[in-house]
Amino acid sequence: MMERLECQWCHAQNPEGSRSCEHCGAPLATAALVSDSGWREAPRLRDMVRFQFSNSTCQVEGELVPVAEVDLSAGDSVIFEHHAMLWKDESVPVGVYPLGGGLKRSLAGMPYVVTQASGPGRVALSRDAPGEVVTLLLHPSMEVDVREHAFLVASHTVRYSFERVKGLANVVHGGSGMYLDRFVTSGEPGIVLLHGYGNVFERTLGPGEKILVEPGGYLYKDSSVTMTARQLNLRTGLLHRGMYMAEMTGPGRVGIQSMYHHHVSE
């Protein structure tokens, strides 16, 4: 019986001898880097690594501001924010992904239009500052919440919506915007690629376990993780504005980025 290699990032099985995971692109046979405090570095994808989703492939190119180049087969499609598109084959059709609440999104500075590109053909996407591409493989019936403007591309098997951050304090003070992007799978697995600014770290919180994260550093979380604003007992600035942190409570994964990048509203 052939030996299989388990990817330490997405836990998918790979044929023996594989250098990178066929499902998420993470290097295989390299030890996970985990800090003493329990944060695990997201795997640095090797330049030009390829991985499969549905009947299509994705290749990640570059190391400073990586590009995700998607080769779509007929019948497959991906969604993305239109301003992340770097180039595309002329023949690839693009359309508007059906979304509700466009006016609210527009008011919140989020892209009004999420674009859908369909195969066959290629489309490439990238963001606007140094960082790394993080691949989140979603098994059926999973939900992840992603900070606004961090999502690079998602497969058509993932349902996209957005979630208003609950609680007035979070909306006003949390600093993470009024909306989170929510990605949900139902019957089929799916894939979401994020662009994290700087380096990306992930930690899995146990039930009830809490950690405080700078709102600008928050990147993603399982929907089972609750996020609320917590005011620290100190004041900063001339106007004595309170300092707020995002209190994350497990169970589930939390991803953070080491560099906060301010986005101009589209």
Binding site: S37, G198, N199
Partner: peptide
Amino acid sequence: RCQVAGTLVPSVDFA
């Protein structure tokens, strides 16, 4: 002690 994590924009974790 502290631990430097990451290579692009390293973070420093203090214990």
